[in-house]
């Protein structure tokens, strides 16, 4: 009996010991958690992006907000203009231009909160007007040329690979202010300029032909040919440089380097010819072209109609000289 009691006491003691060790720490996990008793292992993280609307009317005032938060269940949007929402994704129409602070508050079921704030600059997108291209020495003034002390109306307008340079002359109420395409010579002008792809442009040129001589001239005589050449046809790998002063322009080895390239139909956005009107007054012609898939084009003008074996370019002017007083190119908006 004594032995039995001893056993019971011993057993109970052992049991008590086991409980003592286990009780606090191990049994606590079966307790209901109190607020904050267990750390939130996956706290919410608020994040969002936004997009401005687009359309023909007032859509630019409409913004959509994409909710990119993680580990959150409820959301609250403050759009910064007094409007709020509790939707998952946000959408708001702003009253007009301005700077708004947008706040997304994301919370999870444990009440942990995360905030994300971004500044929204609401601006009406400008209707972009196509700018006029920049033409250097479009008046054909007599200016310095690169690497030469001579002055020339062809300054800024020379590409020796595809023609001989035009020459200076006077006319139309001024001196040294027109470029001349000599009779029976392969004279040209050439200049590259930046354009907006697919925009329409208008080109205006003021020219004069000497009257057709009765002898030894042959009708129709000289014809002035005007081409707009696509930048897509430039030599492979060539990137144009837009000089701001006529004397800086190179005179060979750039853009178009052969007459064959010039005459390739696919490279031409515009080909117009001005035949001899048999009247040596100055006349104004206007043409339009579309820039197509180009952000750069070249204007190329030459005299044709003469003996193609003259010179080394495969073309030449006819029996009369042609003069160009000015060329202007503007965007058609």
């Amino acid at each position: 009996m004594k032995k039995q009691i001893k056993k019971i006491v011993g057993f109970t003691a052992a049991l008590a010991l086991v409980f003592a060790f286990h009780s606090c720490d191990d049994l606590e996990k079966y307790e209901l958690p109190e607020a904050g008793s267990i750390a939130d292992a996956t706290p919410p993280e608020a994040d969002f992006s936004f997009t401005q609307g687009a359309g023909p009317d007032e859509e630019w005032k409409d913004y959509t907000f994409a909710n990119l938060s993680t580990s959150a269940t409820t959301y609250s949007w403050d759009y910064g203009d007094g409007n709020t929402s509790t939707d998952v994704d946000g959408a708001n129409t702003y009253p007009g231009e301005g700077t708004y602070t947008v706040t997304l508050t994301a919370s999870d079921a444990l009440g942990v909160v995360s905030e994300s704030t971004q500044i929204v600059e609401v601006v009406e997108p400008p209707t972009p007007a196509v700018p006029d291209p920049v033409i250097i020495n479009g008046d054909f003034d007599k200016l310095a040329k690169l690497g030469s002390s001579n002055l020339c109306s062809c300054s800024g307008w020379d590409n020796d690979d595809i023609g001989e340079q035009g020459e200076s002359s006077s006319g139309n109420g001024g001196s040294d202010n027109v470029v001349k395409f000599d009779n029976n010579e392969p004279d040209h002008v050439y200049q590259e300029f930046a354009v907006t792809p697919n925009a329409d442009y208008s080109i205006t040129i003021v020219t004069s032909h000497k009257t057709i001589a009765s002898t030894p001239g042959t009708y129709p005589g000289s014809t002035l040919e005007i081409r707009i050449l696509a930048g897509a046809g430039y030599n492979a790998g060539y990137t144009p440089t837009y000089y701001t002063a006529a004397p800086d322009f190179p005179n060979s080895g750039y853009g178009y380097t052969t007459v064959a390239q010039v005459e390739t139909a696919a490279n031409n956005l515009l080909v117009e010819t001005i035949p001899n009107p048999n009247d040596d007054d100055y006349f104004t012609q206007t043409y339009t072209f579309n820039a197509g898939a180009n952000d750069s084009v070249a204007l190329f003008i030459r005299g044709i109609g003469g003996d193609s074996s003259v010179g080394s370019y495969g073309y030449s002017s006819g029996d009369e000289e042609i003069r160009a007083d000015s060329v202007t190119i503007t965007a058609v908006n």
Binding site: A54, G55, P56, P197, N198, N290, G292
Partner: peptide, 11 residues
């Protein structure tokens, strides 16, 4: 080109 419309003939 990201605009709202185009009236370019090629398009």
């Amino acid at each position: 080109a990201g605009g709202n419309d185009t009236s370019v003939q090629a398009a």
